[in-house]
Design a protein around this nucleic acid. Structure first.
Lengths: 352, 352
DNA sequence: TTGTAAGCGTTATCAC
DNA sequence: GTGATAACGCTTACAA
């Protein structure tokens, strides 16, 4: 304990970031000149000075502080991405697409994950806004209507993905839900499944859920007596209830071939689990199509048929929309619907 | 073209964020006083003035700009998280844990996804550092050795998750790989599987892959003639090759019961797909344990046995380590190994 | 073509 | 206790 204390700079000699002032000093010019070199490159600069500045920058390994730039310019090269649930593969896939597009355009994505707690929407938007993000990509909103206002208040452009809050005017990018549901249901019907059950998470006014369920009902209505259908809202953690509901429903259907449409990957998992418990086989006891073509879908039972969402495009398009507006283009709020693609596997083909 | 230009304030009357100066004016005090109120709250403030400031802040809906604060203080309340591949459920799970801990401590997580392009490590670290992140959580590094130096250069604390680059001194949080492999292999052996194949992504010096494979080899060596084992590095997209390799290997094993250990979820998927193509059944033709307990594991075949990583804890612990250091604690580089948990399902139990 | 100086929104160091 | 004032690292009139 009495040993001479080594100098307590345990932190590995923190190399202070060099600033524009350092560069200026080394190059023997003013800060303004360096800044010009950075922002206007060739214009208004004598070759000799430009070279000196360039050398100084290189020798110091200087790069400008985005923070300071943001403070001064009011622009940050940051895009705020609010995601409902990072655990949802759909959200992640969209994120990936968006991120790629943003990075290509020189923007960095700042992520705020709601973890499905919609009451944190405002919080997320506030936090992001305070970092001067230039725009928002929102894969959430539905519950908290004030959050929409929150975005508007900042006057920053926003694009909505997948979910559209009640009265919000903004670009909207989403799967063409109506078409996708028709593809799924139509395919099942064509394969001889006569009685369908649409299983969804509790709808709770979430726009994509509303749209899909409505499309399902519309489809069934159109078919007259050719097909029957109903909707089941399955709450999380209610596994036993789902099993029971499926059993009852199939019994009621009598001898009609029955099929389930699952509204997303989470529901697919729950249904698959219930089906396993019941000892049923996809494709023989039960037809099935689920939304979201996950990489495990081919491996369950005879392979699960799915509606693949163009997630990468969704993210890419969302980012592009936003970037366009950031370039100052003034357009009315657009609504971009991308088609889903039916991937046929064993679960939707009658094997009995 | 000659039409009178409408005033181009099409942007929805951008409500300028109110600044500390606004608050000062409204409250009839100086900026310094407002700042004191914000940072030192009660100390050194007369009740009357404090009340006035508080009222002004409330009425303006003021909140300080983190950017300006970061610029001034050199601290940003930001933590940089570099993730090898946001598509990997393991990475996402860790991210979730880390994010939760950070948010609780008042930090925001800034995410940089490498998309598996390890050559972008430097880039990511640079980008994050330029935003003055106070520390790093790195779920990557292995390939680019200069990236490690990059982190050190900034003198900011970092904690490594899952992968540890060659010569980097920093906190390290990871699954106890050696123990996990022994659990998996031991369990298979105990269930009568005599010949094992360890299937991994190309090892390429990635520490976690190296450790797991080494542990597997060590385990086999210890068993003497009680068990045989070999390793297969399966490159991505090489599906046909994997199928062939499995076939050959099983043939060579003769009548000995064979089992596969998959080094992570991605490999599990590839193996499951190959097994399906071969028409084999898990649990009868082939034993199986895979790393990472995904939510689809129970649904494939008779259920896939897995080693569940404590992902949430991993992320949480990583964040805690970092936060501790940010609080100024000087500790030697720690190494925290969390145990995995064997989840037994049908695939590892001999049904034949 | 280049330099000077003001200011972005904060916080910290002084005086008063 | 409170208020000027000078930074933090950068951009941008305005001068020269």
């Amino acid at each position: 304990m009495n040993a001479p204390q080594p100098p307590d700079d345990t932190a590995p000699t923190e190399v202070a970031r060099s600033t524009i002032a350092d560069v200026a000093r080394v190059a023997g010019v003013s800060k303004a000149t360096v800044s010009r070199f950075l922002n206007h490159r060739d214009k208004l600069l004598s070759a000799e000075i430009a070279a000196r500045v360039e050398a100084a920058i290189a020798s110091l390994g200087y790069s400008p502080s985005p923070m300071a730039q943001a403070l001064k310019r009011g622009r940050s090269r940051l895009i705020g991405l609010v995601v409902a649930d990072i655990t949802n593969p759909f959200s992640v896939a969209v994120l990936r697409g968006a991120e790629k597009a943003c990075q290509q355009a020189g923007y960095l994505v700042m992520l705020f994950n709601l973890g499905n707690q919609s009451e944190r929407e405002r919080e997320g938007i506030e936090a992001l806004a305070s970092y001067q993000v230039e725009g928002f990509i929102l894969n959430t909103l539905g519950a908290d209507p004030t959050a929409a206002g929150e975005v508007a208040r900042h006057g920053k452009p926003a694009v909505l993905v997948d979910r559209r809050p009640p009265g919000m005017k903004a670009d909207f990018v989403s799967l063409d839900n109506a078409d996708a549901v028709r593809q799924a249901a139509g395919h099942l019907l064509a394969n001889g499944w006569r009685e369908m059950l649409y299983v969804t998470e509790p709808i709770k006014g979430v726009s994509s859920r509303v749209e899909r369920e409505a499309a399902f009902r519309a489809f069934i209505a159109e078919q007259g007596r050719a097909a029957g259908g109903q909707t089941l809202e399955a709450g999380e953690g209610d596994d036993a209830a789902l099993v029971q509901a499926l059993k009852d429903w199939r019994k009621r259907a009598g001898r009609k071939p029955v099929a389930v449409i699952a509204s997303n990957a989470v529901v697919t998992l729950r249904v698959a689990s219930a089906v396993a418990q019941l000892g049923w086989q996809f494709g023989t006891d039960l037809g099935f199509v689920g939304f979201d073509d996950t990489d495990w879908a081919p491996l369950i039972g005879p392979g699960l048929s799915t509606i693949a969402q163009p997630t990468d495009d969704l993210g890419h398009v969302a980012a592009s929309c936003l970037l366009e507006r950031l370039q100052g283009r003034q357009l009315p709020a657009r609504q971009i619907l991308l088609p889903g693609k039916l991937v046929v596997r064993g679960s939707s083909q009658r094997a009995a």
